[in-house]
């Protein structure tokens, strides 16, 4: 599914180059449940952005489903994000003026899917995340846990192959944090590849495969 080979990512901060990722090599199979852990500055966010095609590496090779992403145009990367990758963020990133249903619908709107098809699918996905009764509420009328459920519904509405979660519980109390993780794990059991970036071991240790980063390198990669 995902194959990274000697990925390099260097930023220029204040005139001097910073190597955020150093020769990172990684392979993730379809349907895996992977956590990426490490202290801040370890490069885990950079890794997530590269995996999600929001950022391009300076060197090395990233193959998604067998295709070299370095050769993709910006529009092809957009298409990859639209159809194959779902994102869940720490701060939910819901559009505040839109209802829960409209937020979930957004990726389908930009994909040009006809309205009746969209409505059906939104209903279905909101049901899956347990928010069928809250479809008409705006984000500020929802609790943090509910907002994150809407975000997850939005991430999976296009039926992606991979779900990338960046500190998905970082802004939630432990109860609703656990519910969110359980929801994503349920989706993983149905075949969705799940990659969770976190600095919280309680969350990260639930994954079947745990990757630890430090200083831009993979320092451990174990599956119990």
């Amino acid at each position: 599914m995902i194959r990274l080979d000697a990925i390099e990512r260097t930023y220029v901060v204040g005139g001097s180059p910073v190597r955020a990722l150093k020769e990172t090599t990684l392979e993730i199979q379809p349907g895996e449940y992977v956590s990426i852990m490490g202290p801040s500055g370890s490069g885990k966010s950079t890794l997530l952005h590269i995996l999600g095609c929001l950022d391009r590496p300076n060197g090395g090779s990233y193959r998604f489903a067998g295709q070299e992403t370095a050769r993709f145009s910006d529009d092809e990367l957009s298409s990859l994000r639209r159809h194959r990758i779902g994102f869940v963020f720490q701060f939910f990133h819901l559009v505040p003026r839109l209802t829960a249903a409209a937020n979930v619908e957004l990726p389908m709107v930009f994909a040009g899917i006809p309205p009746d098809q969209r409505r059906q699918r939104v209903e279905q996905v909101l049901e899956v995340v347990g928010l069928g009764h809250r479809a008409g509420h705006r984000p500020d009328q929802l609790s943090g846990g509910e907002q994150q459920r809407v975000a997850i519904a939005r991430a999976v509405v296009m039926e992606p192959a991979v779900l990338l979660a960046d500190e998905p519980t970082g802004n939630l109390d432990s109860g609703s944090g656990r519910e969110i993780v359980e929801l994503m794990e349920r989706m993983n059991r149905q075949g969705l590849t799940l990659i969770v970036v976190t600095h919280d071991p309680k969350i990260g240790d639930r994954a079947r495969r745990r990757i630890r980063l430090a200083d831009g390198r993979v320092i451990s990669d174990d599956s119990p």
Partner: peptide, 16 residues
């Protein structure tokens, strides 16, 4: 800005 970032994350193209 956050909304625009999100639009890009969900696969909205430059032209869109």
């Amino acid at each position: 800005a956050r909304e625009i970032g999100l639009l890009k994350a969900i696969g909205t193209t430059h032209a869109q």
